[in-house]
Design a protein around this nucleic acid. Structure first.
Lengths: 354, 354
DNA sequence: TAAATTTTCGTGTACGTACACAAAAATAAA
DNA sequence: TTTATTTTTGTGTACGTACACGAAAATTTA
């Protein structure tokens, strides 16, 4: 609670004094504006380095009239899947943190089942003219159109959740799907005996999600291929997400095969858990994705053994911060930011941060 | 890149205008200083609420002369164990982030093997008069003395890494040791068959660490007690940390017992890994603690199956932020902040953030 | 009621930087 | 050399808040 004057750190004034110039000149050098004689600039630059001058962000922001408008385009969190609530929360949190720095974030939503909504909102974004865009490139063709427009308008863009390589995005923030499947297999490898059977379950209505699931499955299979473990991999695709559909399909599959472990490639694992519980399959191990309330419920009951999660909320946060760091602060930004692959169990979910 | 005037958000000036008072009065109300007539204060307060006034942190900080000095007292990172490097980094990072807000952080180190160094540094801290203290209460008696002094000097303090309950600390930030042991047991439960033997290994010279290890062991045993799995738990304490000591002790133990899984209760797991590798015990599963380079090496080689880690770097970061949030921003701070218990494998360590 | 005192309020300056504008210096054109 | 032009540099004001100081209003005292 002392009231000492803060930071005897140097500012433009001190630099100006030492260089025998006015603060105006120092300012010009710092923001490398034109109109400074070469040797004056050098002299000032030298003193800046010598004093290890750190600009005062507070004052800088206060004096600057510049404001930044970021646009976000992500799927609306449907009742179908609440997944996108998490990234949205992260986005809002980040927006809140940097509001004082002159950044406003506007969020646009599209319908995962309707490509045209993506295009409509994308056009709105372009029309309004933002300084940066964060979006989920869920539809390839439509996304390409959007980023082309961003490109001509010189607007940097960041991908979230899924990537389109080689599209000189500022950054990609999202999961490493293949690797997460590989990790899942590693965990399951501890749970199975030789000759046992593992069932891979894809539950998804939307085709758009499908390659997501396939990448995880690829990683999953790759693990067993590389370690040559003598286990059987079965697979079933369920194209309806309601409980009855899942139940009937699984009933059939489990009747025909002796399954020891089930790996669900997305957050729909709770539906499978419900089935296993109701059907009394207590000996089947279960593993799936995402920190959702319904999943945690079954994790708590030990119906689900593990959940894998890649911090969706933090993805949103990092997405906004990538734009902020690059555009506002002028810092370099990592091109690919894979989220950590978290393993959630009955013991550690309490303190998990999404 | 637009140059619109930032944030048409209201400031003291607008409030003053609407309330028919000067900004001075508004300022007095905001910082509830004395010298404002009751009804004037009310009127201003009402308008403030009505306009949902958010003070501009930039301007506030710029105008304020107040500075904050935080002290940190943690073990020096010895060559023995580099663990405390991680919290230190987090502390430095946090210090960096809030430097512009007038906070300076000064770090004091003590020797884990010498209680007197703790007391010496603690006295230095009290003498200098800080606004907040973050420290690792490693020695009970000495820590009690320190916090008593803090108490009389009205200095809030935060515990890191280990807790002393009921000492009205501002916050505790650290691992949940019992739970992490419990989780370890859960994982190991997948790896063992009935009747197999699990060896618990404590490697530590310093008695101060011992209750740390015991808590993990407690959790570990509790798991098997509660699920009644018919496995054997063996245990060995190794009071020397050098490789030869570990080797000879383990050689003896493994000769006398058929061990299937080894659980090392701290970061010394790499030493055990080295032994297992050199002795050719390829069938013994191994698990231990902490994201250290030497451990990762054996994780990569699959000698270690899992590592458990509780984000030591983030612990340091959160410790400083707890002081900052409470003292500078006046925000409420959670009293107990248990870190997430992370499971690190060969597949996910690449993107792990300590 | 006037003077003295206390309470309440308004004004001015500062924080460190950005930026517009004016002044000075250097250079080019006459 | 003088004038015109360009380049370089200095000055002033603003950002939103904190705080010291002094002015005005209200209250008490004489």
């Amino acid at each position: 609670m002392k009231k000492t004057t803060a930071t005897a750190l140097v500012g433009v004034k001190e630099i100006a004094r030492r260089a025998n110039v006015s603060i105006g000149t120092v300012d010009r050098v710092l923001n490398n504006r034109s109109g400074v004689a070469a040797k004056t600039r050098e002299r000032v630059l030298e003193i800046i380095k010598e004093l290890d001058y750190q600009p005062n962000m507070m004052a800088r922001r206060l004096a600057s009239r510049r404001s930044w408008q970021f646009a976000v385009l992500i799927p609306a969190a449907s009742t179908e899947t609440g997944y996108w609530n998490a990234p949205l929360q992260g986005i809002k949190q980040a927006a809140n943190e940097i509001r004082d720095f002159g950044v406003t974030v506007q969020v646009f939503f599209f319908d995962q089942n309707d490509k045209t909504t993506f295009t409509t909102e994308a056009n709105n974004i372009i029309k309004q003219g933002f300084d940066g865009v964060l979006f989920a490139p869920m539809f390839e063709e439509e996304s390409l159109k959007l980023l082309k427009k961003c490109h001509t308008a010189q607007i940097p863009y960041v991908f979230i959740n899924s990537d389109m390589e080689g599209q000189d995005r500022l950054s990609y923030i999202g999961p490493d799907l293949y690797q997460s499947g590989y990790l899942a297999a590693h965990l399951i490898n501890y749970m199975v005996q030789d000759q046992q059977q593992i069932l891979i379950v894809n539950i998804s209505k939307e085709m758009g999600h499908h390659h997501h699931l396939l990448k995880k499955e690829d990683g999953f299979r790759a693990y067993f291929r590389s370690n040559k473990r003598p286990v059987q991999l079965l697979k079933t695709d369920i194209r309806q997400t309601d409980y009855q559909s899942v139940k009937s399909k699984l009933t059939k599959t489990l009747k025909e095969n002796k399954v020891d472990v089930i790996f669900v490639t997305n957050s729909r694992v709770a539906t499978v858990a419900r089935f296993l519980e109701e059907a009394g399959h207590v000996n089947i191990r279960l593993m799936g994705y995402d920190f959702l309330a319904e999943n945690i419920e079954y994790l708590e009951k030990s119906v689900i053994d593990f959940l894998i999660c890649q911090k969706p909320q933090e993805q949103g946060h990092k997405g906004i911060m990538a734009l902020y760091n690059s555009l506002v602060l002028g810092l370099p930004v990592e091109e690919i930011q894979h989220m950590p692959i978290d393993i959630i169990t009955r013991e550690n979910y309490h303190n998990y941060r999404n």
